[in-house]
Amino acid sequence: SDFTIRIGDRTLHLKNVSEEILKILEELLRRGIDFEELRKIVEELIK
C-alpha cells in the first residue's frame, strides 16, 4: 500500500509498503524518531 509521512514541513512518500514495514515505521514515529533517521531507515528497507 502507499503511505505518506509528514513531519513538520517535510514529506516522505512510500509506495508498495508492506503492513509489517508500516507497523515498524509507526512504532518509530511513536518513539519520536528524527525525520532524517526515519528517511535513512526507509531507504534501507525499500532497497
Rank of each mutant, 00 (worst) to 15 (best):
K40W: 09
I7W: 04
R10D: 15
K15T: 13
R39H: 12
V17Q: 02
I46P: 08
L28I: 09
E26K: 13
I41Q: 12
R6Y: 01
S1G: 14
R39L: 13
I5F: 01
I33D: 09
I7L: 08
R39P: 07
L45P: 03
H13D: 04
I33Y: 08
I33T: 11
K47F: 10
R10E: 15
I41M: 11
F3Y: 05
I21R: 04
L38H: 02
K15S: 11
R10V: 15
E26T: 10
R39V: 13
G32L: 07
E20T: 13
T11C: 03
K47L: 11
R31S: 08
K40R: 15
E27Y: 04
H13R: 06
E43H: 14
V17A: 05
H13W: 02
E26G: 07
L14W: 02
L29C: 05
S18G: 06
R6K: 14
G8V: 01
L38A: 02
L14T: 01
I41H: 09
I41N: 09
I46H: 10
R10G: 08
F35S: 05
L22H: 13
L45E: 09
R6F: 01
E19L: 10
I41R: 09
E44C: 09
L22K: 14
K40Y: 12
L22W: 12
I41S: 10
E26D: 11
S18F: 02
K15M: 06
I7P: 00
G8R: 02
E44I: 08
D2M: 00
R31L: 08
V42I: 11
L25I: 14
E37Q: 13
I21L: 11
L12G: 00
I5L: 02
S1Y: 15
E43L: 10
L14A: 03
V42Q: 02
I5Y: 00
D34N: 12
L38N: 03
R10L: 13
S1Q: 15
K40S: 11
G8S: 02
E36L: 04
F35G: 05
F35I: 04
K15R: 06
D2W: 00
I5N: 00
L38K: 02
I46S: 10
N16E: 09
R30N: 13
S1C: 04
K40V: 12
E44T: 09
D9W: 00
R39W: 10
F35C: 01
I21N: 13
L22T: 12
I41L: 11
L45H: 07
L38R: 01
R31V: 15
L25Q: 00
R30A: 14
R39E: 12
D9I: 01
E27D: 13
K47Y: 09
L25K: 00
R6N: 13
R30C: 04
K47R: 07
G8P: 00
G8W: 00
E43K: 08
D9L: 02
G32Y: 09
R30S: 15
L12N: 00
D9Q: 03
E26I: 09
D9G: 05
R6M: 08
L22Y: 09
G32F: 10
L22S: 10
I7F: 07
H13A: 04
D2F: 00
E27K: 05
L28H: 13
T11R: 05
I24N: 08
I24C: 05
I5G: 00
L25C: 03
K47P: 13
K40H: 13
E44F: 11
L25S: 02
I7C: 07
N16V: 04
L28K: 09
I46R: 08
L28V: 12
I5E: 00
I33R: 04
E43R: 07
E43A: 14
I21S: 11
D9V: 02
L29E: 03
R31C: 05
S1I: 14
G32S: 11
K40A: 14
F35T: 06
F35H: 05
I7R: 00
E37R: 05
K15E: 10
R30M: 12
L12E: 01
I7T: 01
D9T: 05
R30W: 07
E36D: 15
K23I: 14
D34M: 09
G8Y: 01
R6A: 12
L22P: 04
L38V: 07
E37N: 08
I46G: 14
L25M: 04
N16S: 07
L38E: 01
E43Q: 10
S18D: 08
T4W: 01
L38W: 03
E27T: 08
F35Q: 04
L14Y: 03
R10A: 14
D9K: 04
T4I: 15
I21K: 07
G32V: 07
V42F: 06
E20H: 10
I5T: 01
D2G: 01
L14E: 01
K47W: 07
K15L: 03
E43W: 09
F35P: 06
E26N: 10
V17M: 07
E36R: 04
K23T: 14
G8F: 02
E44M: 09
L12Q: 01
G8Q: 03
K40E: 08
I41D: 03
T11L: 05
L22Q: 15
F35Y: 12
K15A: 12
R6V: 14
R6W: 00
I5K: 01
L28W: 08
R30H: 15
L12I: 15
K15C: 04
F3C: 10
V42H: 03
I21T: 13
R6T: 15
L38S: 01
L14N: 00
S18P: 13
V42L: 10
I41Y: 08
V17R: 00
S1W: 07
D2C: 03
T4S: 04
E36N: 13
V17D: 03
I7K: 01
K40T: 14
I33P: 11
K47E: 07
E19F: 10
E26W: 05
E27M: 06
N16Q: 05
L38F: 13
I5P: 00
D2V: 00
E20W: 07
E20F: 08
I5Q: 01
E36Y: 06
E44Y: 05
L29G: 04
E36Q: 10
H13L: 12
E44H: 11
I41E: 07
G32E: 14
L12P: 00
E26F: 09
E44S: 12
H13K: 05
R10C: 06
L12D: 00
I33S: 09
R31Y: 06
R30F: 09
E27P: 07
R31H: 11
E37F: 05
I33H: 09
L28E: 09
S18T: 14
I21F: 13
I7V: 11
E26C: 05
I24L: 10
R30K: 11
F35W: 09
L14K: 01
R30G: 08
K47I: 13
E44G: 12
R39D: 06
R31M: 10
R39C: 04
E44N: 14
E37S: 14
I21D: 10
I33F: 06
R6C: 12
N16D: 10
L29N: 04
S1F: 14
E20Q: 11
E37K: 09
E36F: 07
K40L: 14
H13M: 05
L22A: 08
T4A: 04
D2N: 01
E27G: 07
R30T: 15
I5C: 02
I46A: 13
D2Q: 00
I24F: 13
D34V: 10
G8T: 01
E19C: 05
D2I: 00
E43D: 14
F3Q: 05
S18H: 04
K23R: 14
G32K: 08
L14R: 00
K47S: 12
S18N: 09
E37I: 08
I46N: 13
K15H: 12
I24M: 13
R31A: 12
E19W: 07
T11I: 13
I24G: 08
V17C: 02
L45A: 06
T4E: 12
E20D: 14
I24A: 11
E44K: 11
S1E: 15
E20G: 10
I24T: 11
I7S: 02
E26P: 05
K40P: 08
E37C: 05
I21C: 04
I46Q: 11
I41G: 04
R39Y: 11
R30D: 06
E20M: 05
R39I: 15
E27L: 08
I24W: 08
T4M: 07
I46W: 08
I21Y: 06
D34W: 03
K23Q: 11
E20C: 03
E44A: 11
K47G: 12
E27S: 09
R31W: 05
E19M: 15
L22E: 05
G8N: 05
I33Q: 06
E43T: 09
H13Q: 10
V42P: 00
L45Y: 10
E43F: 10
D34E: 11
S1R: 11
K23D: 14
E19P: 15
F3S: 04
S18L: 02
D2R: 00
G32I: 07
R6E: 11
E36M: 05
I41T: 13
D9M: 02
I33M: 11
L14S: 01
I21W: 10
L12A: 01
F3W: 03
I33N: 07
L14Q: 01
K47C: 05
T4H: 14
K15G: 06
K15F: 06
R31P: 07
L28D: 03
E44R: 12
F3L: 15
E26V: 05
S18Y: 01
L38I: 10
E36K: 04
T11D: 10
D34A: 12
E26Q: 13
I5M: 02
T11F: 04
V42M: 05
I33G: 07
V17L: 05
G32A: 12
S18I: 02
L29M: 11
R30Q: 13
R6S: 12
R10I: 14
K40I: 12
S18R: 04
D9F: 00
I41P: 01
R31K: 15
L28N: 07
K40F: 13
D34F: 05
I33W: 05
R30L: 14
R10K: 14
K23F: 07
D2T: 00
I7Q: 02
R39T: 13
D34P: 11
R39S: 11
L28A: 07
L45I: 11
S1D: 10
V42R: 00
